[in-house]
Design a protein around this nucleic acid. Structure first.
Length: 649
RNA sequence: GCUGGAAUAACUCAGUUGGUAGAGUACCUCACUCGUAAUGAGGAAGUCGAGGGUUCAAGUCCCUUUUCCAGCUCCA
């Protein structure tokens, strides 16, 4: 007998060797029916797992993350089965569950067309109806490779061979005529997959390496109920309504022009104004934290980048002015980073340990020649402006200054409303990086990373580790943000650099009279303004916090002949420092309100004969709330409070 | 850079097997002077992204190219 501890610390006894599925069945037919996988002593397992020792057992349904994953993973097998039936020559790569569904990579002669996807979906539905049970079986590594070779699956053979040296048996899952190499866990049967949608068909490189063959990746999502699928698709549609690339254009924050070029958005007055407001605020915050503002050139001779290492590591990413390979002529490059420029400020004269830390910051426009497929709205562009700082410091100051940088970034992100959705990534080097990406020795890297780890752990920060995500000169703490499509990018980065100071000969004279190399922190406090604006537009669906709105208040006279009085109100507000306009057109009040609402204007002040008699304004907020009549002074007080507090929804 | 999708009026989109361009909104004019998300009438507006080709005839078919979108790779 085994003792199984269930949810709520309920302990039940079963015969040894009972499967998790049978335990679920004993607990209730409903639970058994909806069970997707289980967790045994904290580890996610297959429902077929036999229980031979006392353990804690949790039955995972579709409501749990891991239950969903098993469900979606099984759906990816159904997808593969359908593809095999319709396209017998397709070769299979991998087909995992992801955060919002699943995908499967196929090697096919021609990528699937939308038409093909429909046919595949129909075949999947057929397979689900056929209701196959999944069977799991184990093979010795050699036998497993043999089977996969027999099946003529070269990618699977390659995957399998990686595990053969461990000597452990290799697991397979079989449903009907279809067998796949797979670690699981999986559903007991394909029958519960009632609703399936294949959402996209794109290219993806084998093993994520662009040097390898490009495969055809089919994305999809599935649910136990059709209504859940509909709800899911509805949510995706709603998310798209927040897409900055859509509303940023509609609300006239930015536009793009064919003949200007890719990745070169044109900021319209509203977008330019928000960025101006952000920049002024960030510069003030930074200076209040002891930062010194610099203004350095936007481009420099090739020689500067040779010292910094950018010429060797980043040439493809730079815009070059001149022939990079003609050493007899002057050649310039637009700057992709500020570091080597800002170091010149430090190098301007001899520095003492007393001068450190020296916190340099700049509102810095950068140029990066991104590959043509990379550009995306305001999130990924070829020219952007970032608050970029370099703190030059003694080793003993590293921890405190690093913490200061993190506090600054968190403060900035919190103020603009993005912090709560951020995640942290400790980006480390990969000694096995095949492209010789990293400068410095293994010792230097291990040292820098262990120092950074200690600092992060002391702070108690919850972070993920990103291998091979470091900068070429050092490890990073990246603050990550997801856009409305779930794609993650870095919004803020703080980096520890123990290499570049030496390259530039940046010394300080220490208290013992010796010349020593400083450490450098590369940091941004709010990231680049274009990207931050994009995320804010998505986060607030265009209704930015009032302190950043280009137009904060609109005065709406009920009829055209009251525009004189309305203009007086406008002047009063403007004098109080509020950004305000008046809609003097001869339109109905409902029409004017509708327009102001669609433009997300925080407050609308309606003025009719009644208000003029009472000396008041009728205040309506963009949250569709009528706040009633109040005096202009009262409203100014209310508005100023909201602006000064940088309040956000 | 790679894979797939797209580009028609300022915007959102329709346009059948190839037969010569259409709606709503916005804009302009006029009337209305209005009470919390769309007043009515009229008008103007398109080299169908660009270039080439097939054809008696191309928005529609083919090729090239630019830009936009999703994904991969890369990256703030």
């Amino acid at each position: 007998m085994v003792k199984v501890t269930l949810k709520g610390d309920v302990v039940k006894e079963f015969d040894s060797g009972i499967t998790a599925a049978e335990v679920a069945k004993s607990l209730g037919a409903g639970l058994y029916k909806s069970a997707c996988a289980c967790r045994i002593d904290g580890e996610v397992r297959d429902l077929r797992t036999a229980i031979e020792n006392d353990c804690e057992l949790e039955i995972l349904t579709f409501d749990s993350t891991d239950g969903k994953k098993a469900f979606w993973h099984t759906t990816s097998h159904v997808l593969a089965q359908a593809v095999k039936r319709l396209f017998p020559n397709a070769k299979f790569a991998i087909g995992p569950a992801i955060d919002n569904g699943f995908y499967y990579d196929f090697d096919v002669e021609k990528p699937f067309s939308p038409d093909d996807l429909e046919k595949i979906t129909a075949e999947m539905k057929k397979i689900v109806k056929e209701g196959y049970e999944l069977e799991r079986f184990l093979l010795d590594p050699e036998k497993a490779v043999e089977l996969l070779e027999e099946m003529n699956e070269p990618y699977k053979v390659e995957l399998c061979k990686e595990h053969t040296d461990k000597g452990e048996p290799i697991s397979f899952y079989k449903q009907g005529e279809f067998t796949d190499l797979c670690a699981g866990p999986h559903l007991m049967s394909v029958a519960p997959i009632k609703a399936v949608k294949l959402t996209a068909c794109t290219g993806a490189y084998w093993r994520g390496d662009s040097k390898n063959a490009q495969l055809c990746r089919v994305y999809g999502v599935s649910f136990p109920k059709a209504s859940q699928l509909e709800e899911h698709l509805q949510k995706l549609e709603e998310a798209k309504l927040r897409d900055h690339n859509k509303i940023g254009r509609e609300l006239e924050y930015f536009t793009t022009v064919d003949y200007v070029g890719q990745g070169l958005p044109v900021l319209l007055p509203k977008g330019a104004r928000v960025i101006q407001l952000l920049q002024r605020w960030v510069e003030d915050v930074e200076q209040s934290k002891g930062c010194l503002l610099t203004k350095t050139p936007l481009f420099a001779k090739r020689e500067l980048y040779k010292i910094s290492g950018h010429w060797d590591h980043y040439l493809d990413g730079m815009f070059i002015l001149g022939d990079p390979y003609d050493e007899t002529k002057e050649c310039f490059a637009l700057r992709p980073m500020t570091c080597p420029f800002q170091y010149q400020v430090y190098l301007n004269k001899q520095r003492s340990y007393r001068d450190l830390p020296m916190r340099l910051t700049e509102t810095s426009t950068l140029f990066r020649n991104e590959a043509s497929g990379e550009m995306h709205g305001l999130i990924r562009v070829r020219q952007f402006t970032i608050s970029e700082g370099h703190y030059i410091l003694r080793p003993d100051q590293l921890e405190e200054e690093f913490k200061g940088c993190l506090e600054l970034a968190k403060y900035c992100l919190d103020t603009v409303g993005l912090l709560e959705d951020c995640t942290f990534r400790f980006s480390q080097w990969d000694p096995k990086n095949p492209n010789n990406k990293y400068e410095g020795t293994a010792e230097q890297w291990e040292h820098a990373q262990s120092v950074m780890k200690k600092i992060l752990d002391n702070i108690g920060l919850d972070y993920e580790i990103g291998i091979d995500e470091a900068a070429f000169y050092g490890p990073k703490l990246d603050i990550q943000y997801k856009n409305v499509f779930g794609k993650e990018d870095t919004i803020v980065t703080i980096q520890i650099d123990m290499l570049l100071a030496e390259k530039f000969g940046m010394y300080y004279v220490d208290s013992d009279g010796q010349k020593k190399l400083p450490y450098i922190i590369h940091r941004t406090s709010l990231g680049c303004y274009e990207r931050t604006l994009a995320y804010m537009l998505e986060r607030f669906a265009g209704a930015l916090p009032m302190w950043l709105m280009p137009e904060q208040v609109r005065v709406l006279p009920i009829s055209e002949n009251l525009s004189g009085q309305a203009k007086e109100v406008e002047a009063k507000l403007a004098a109080a420092g509020i950004r305000v306009t008046t809609d003097v057109r001869s339109e109905k009040i409902g029409y004017k309100i509708r327009e102001a609402q669609l433009e997300k204007i925080p407050y609308m002040l309606v003025i009719g004969n009644k208000e003029i008699e009472d000396g008041t304004v009728s205040v309506r907020s963009r949250k569709n709330v009528n706040l009633g009549a109040m005096s202009v002074d009262e409203f100014i007080k209310l508005a100023k409070e909201e602006i000064d507090s940088k309040k956000r929804d």
